[in-house]
Write a protein that binds this DNA or RNA. Structure first.
Lengths: 252, 252
DNA sequence: CCAGGTGACTGGTCAGACCAGTTGATTTCC
DNA sequence: GGAAATCAACTGGTCTGACCAGTCACCTGG
């Protein structure tokens, strides 16, 4: 050990735009700048931070790519704060998949794990209000069932969000959503080939009802299994043979 | 439905720097630009893409913030390609936690799920070579045990990587690593307070040995439980009371 | 009272300049 | 001849100032 105690850590050169981005990011994640609020205009930021406009712009690009802000040309109110979302996760997961570091099968398997455990935890920790929200979304799905796929998917997502909230772990839901979006981004074209949307929606409603019952009954293992099975049924035909084996292993 | 079939989707304005970033990102994730290779200098990119230098720089900032490239001033070889890594995931998870969208407890619970399922899958799909690599890392950990915390942690990480590879799902391991790094980033100061590093390392070695045995025996449930328990034991004292309840629920 | 024009903003882009750091070849000194 | 100092040609990082195309508030003429 060097004299004087712990050795010095290497210092990283910090560039001006990083400081600016960090400063703004801190205010966003700490809630000082809530979603919906506006940043000062670029030229105003320039004078506040005492840097050049390109520096400010590079910082804003970084924040924008992380999904924290959105800028629209001509908006006199300035850059809009979006707050923290699953956007960054989605982007990162999508990259991982597109680069074949992770296959579509792994993505789906990952979501099987996520949804399964989410259901399991929800079955342990559910509150009456959670169950109500889930039932509500199932009712909406049934209403929309024969047609209206887009609204149906939305209700589906809200159901899963309710489960995630009941589980007490927002991360599980957020991640599952990000994975879902990444999967959609990768096999978009194949999804369009789903033959009978009406029949699928009907089965989906039945499945969600079973999940709700398991959660209501406090049957964690059953709810987890149902969640995994539903994903397996849906995706088994959309992935390759090798990936299908992965999915089978994840069924448990 | 509008005449002519499906209705038009809203178009999103695509900015020049986005096109540039996308173009480069595609070459990286598709492997045309492998990790370690170099991008042309900024001024060269300017002439190749036919845009201004600030546009190129904004694109590079986006890629850099995603962990795909790294630039060093004065490097005559140009911007270095890093390839796809868990870096982006780490950053996104860290943001989620710092913004209190997700608590530290959720993060740890999330990792309990991840590690547990990773172990379970590894127990199902393990190969002899995987087991060897795991044993190797345990031996290294034992060697380093009383002192050398840094190298110990590295061997630890390599063990988990071996498990992740055995599980057949790189995403689980990548995500667990990202969560781990995010946790470290959030409760760094508390970790330094761990009283007796030597004793901890000893217990850690014993734990890893048990996990390896469970995986070798094909005992998925046991391996999953061990993984979750180890994290619980380590973090239970480092999180608040509310979070501790979460972690208990995740023990299963 | 309302339609349409207009001007003062916004962010997006570009060109050009300078600085500081890195590197490798060149020169200088022993 | 070989090692050390020097220098020139890069690199990326930053700043300035300019222009464009949107957007919106306001004002004016019907």
């Amino acid at each position: 050990m060097a004299a004087g105690g712990v050795p010095f850590q290497p210092v990283r050169a910090v560039r001006a735009y990083e400081r600016v981005a960090e400063e703004i990011e801190n205010r966003i994640v700490s809630g000082v700048l809530p979603p919906g609020s506006r940043l000062p205009g670029e030229r105003e930021l320039v004078s506040q931070f005492g840097v050049g406009r390109s520096t400010v712009r590079e910082a804003l690009r970084v924040l924008e790519s992380g999904g924290l802000v959105r800028s629209r040309p001509g908006d006199p109110l300035g850059v809009e704060v979006l707050g923290v979302s699953s956007e960054g996760l989605t982007r990162a997961l999508g990259r991982l998949t597109r680069s074949r570091v992770a296959s579509v099968g792994e993505l789906v398997q990952f979501r099987m794990v996520l949804d399964g455990e989410s259901n399991r935890l929800a079955a342990c920790l559910r509150q009456e209000s959670d169950l109500e929200r889930m039932a509500e979304q199932i009712a909406r799905m049934e209403e929309l069932s024969p047609v209206g796929l887009r609204a149906f998917s939305e209700a589906d997502a809200l159901f899963h969000q309710a489960v995630a909230e009941a589980s007490g772990n927002a991360l599980l839901g957020l991640c599952a959503r990000a994975v879902h979006e990444a999967v959609v981004g990768v096999i978009e074209q194949k999804i369009a080939a789903v033959s009978d949307a009406g029949a699928w929606m009907e089965r989906s409603v039945a499945h969600h009802r079973r999940v709700l019952e398991a959660i209501r009954a406090g049957d964690g293992e059953g709810a987890a299994r149902l969640g995994r099975e539903a994903l397996f049924d849906y995706y088994a035909d959309l992935v390759g043979e090798g990936d299908r084996q992965l999915l089978k292993a994840a069924l448990g």
